[in-house]
Design a protein around this nucleic acid. Sequence first.
DNA 1: CTGAAAGCGCTAACAT
DNA 2: ATGTTAGCGCTTTCAG
Lengths: 341, 341
Amino acid sequence: MTKPDIRRPLTLRDVSEACGVSEMTVSRVLRNRDDVSPATREKVLAAARELGYVPNKIAGGLASQRVNLVAVIVPSLSNMVFPEVLGGISAALEDTGLQPVFGVTNYLAAREEAVLYEMLSWRPSGVILAGLEHTPAARAMLENAGIPVVEIMDTDGEAIDSVVGISHRAAGRQMAEAIVAAGYRRIGFLGTKMPHDHRARKRMEGLTAGLAEHGLELAATEFYEGGSALAKGREMTEAILKRVPDLDFLYYSNDMIGAGGLIWCLEKGLDIPETLGLAGFNGLEFLEGLPRRLATIDACRREIGERAAQIIAGRGMDGVIGGVRVELTPVLQPGDTIRRR
Amino acid sequence: MTKPDIRRPLTLRDVSEACGVSEMTVSRVLRNRDDVSPATREKVLAAARELGYVPNKIAGGLASQRVNLVAVIVPSLSNMVFPEVLGGISAALEDTGLQPVFGVTNYLAAREEAVLYEMLSWRPSGVILAGLEHTPAARAMLENAGIPVVEIMDTDGEAIDSVVGISHRAAGRQMAEAIVAAGYRRIGFLGTKMPHDHRARKRMEGLTAGLAEHGLELAATEFYEGGSALAKGREMTEAILKRVPDLDFLYYSNDMIGAGGLIWCLEKGLDIPETLGLAGFNGLEFLEGLPRRLATIDACRREIGERAAQIIAGRGMDGVIGGVRVELTPVLQPGDTIRRR
DNA sequence: CTGAAAGCGCTAACAT
DNA sequence: ATGTTAGCGCTTTCAG
């Protein structure tokens, strides 16, 4: 083996010495600049490959004051919606030379602040983060960072810079309209107890407001935390119907608990959607395998990721252009659990 | 609306000037070193907070030759198993000062190589990556990186450094034993077509080998790609039973398609587990909400993440210690879909 | 097209 | 307990 035994990571200088070309020119080749003669380029590439040189982006980033990282901060990875957003971001960033870096907050504002601080300390080219609600310190950091910031998922509120999402209040209202139009009158809401899931809260607010316009109000609510969402959906459904047996519609704050509820109802032989209507939220692909299709509203997860990434990718690091606002309009998918009339 | 002052990112020097303390001491305070007097510490902290200073880890990393990042590379985020691994890693890294950075390969070896190259160029403190199969170039990079490397999920093969996982071949065998012991004889395998899901492949190999020991062989196989796993599970189950109606057991390569199959079978009124037994793989929490509990083998996802992170966190950057090998032994959960005798 | 010099913002290693 | 000096490995800028 001709490799140096020393475990010091290789530097440009090592490559330079190995091929007899100046460090500067080696650097040019490795950055794919086109002002190098083909001959030298080959020589350099061969040497770099031979040695197994991996460039040091820390040094490069410091020297160039430019880093190809995009910070992406989401509340959770465990409910299938954010992984899809991340998929959209990754795909859209694919050929831009930009690289997403993910951070998770567990729906904790303080954790978001900490993760953001950590990520900004790497001087990324942009930030994508979920939601419009942040601690004052987090807002300040974002405003001062001097890089494009895209807040995603939610458009109900004031954005720091750009925003891509849907109105969850409108989604709640839209569902209220559909429920009322289908003739349901005794509506229950089932959701997570998480106080920091602002979007679930807004959907409930939208639902309530929408019902109010028809002189209706929620007949019952049920909240949960932790555990398997599918199992919780079953339990909550049983519980809410025991408490308030005359409900004729259940609106779940997400498809997973909705699916659990649906499965429970079918097992009990309830007449869905005649006696009881059901609806969830998100438009999870997962619903396609269920015995009946749960009514839902697509949250446009992948598209949100893609659009957000495009906004970051499309803007240089210089002058901060005014924020872009993209409000997608989700479509209600009535499935088989809202009666048609 | 637009802020008039062009915002050059703040440096240590700005903080230093703002509080009249040398850059060096400011640096000490910001790194929480205890060799600074409380008085100066407060002064510095106040100034830093006031200015909204965010340290530049690029410069810090270059100067100290040390970076608190751990590269984590997984094939996918979309099937619930890796998000759980990442959760375990994040939790275990929580108070170590180390920060995970995630990369996704989509089960593509070439993509893994590219992501790895990118991540190593940031000189992380360690690497955690799924599987033992890598391109030669990727292996070379890992061997030369001079940092701890933990390969996770799978122990069937030769590790580069450390490894934490389960034997998927053994899991397949274990399932074969349980199936045969329960008296099933006509066994079908349903799985993904992905040629690069080595672990699914090994489970199938283990199953085949285990059956062979009892003079049995697979009576049918069915593969899918893309789409909703739950829906695919239904379709495949219908298809395989149409092709080979006398099957008495279906082994699915993951719980999601298994759940789809289970739902389909229950709808069709098949006598589960008497006429037909079913089993999946992973031990997804999700199964708890289903009408029957699908038999499965827990893949120990969270624990794998935790143990891998501990290995990285427990080792300094100096001398590379011999690799650690952790083989967890997953427990078969028979659920309600394997008959008991 | 190629090279030499001068930092990027921070911290290790010494002073004091 | 605090300050000074000298880089970390690369890229920018400017000369050949």
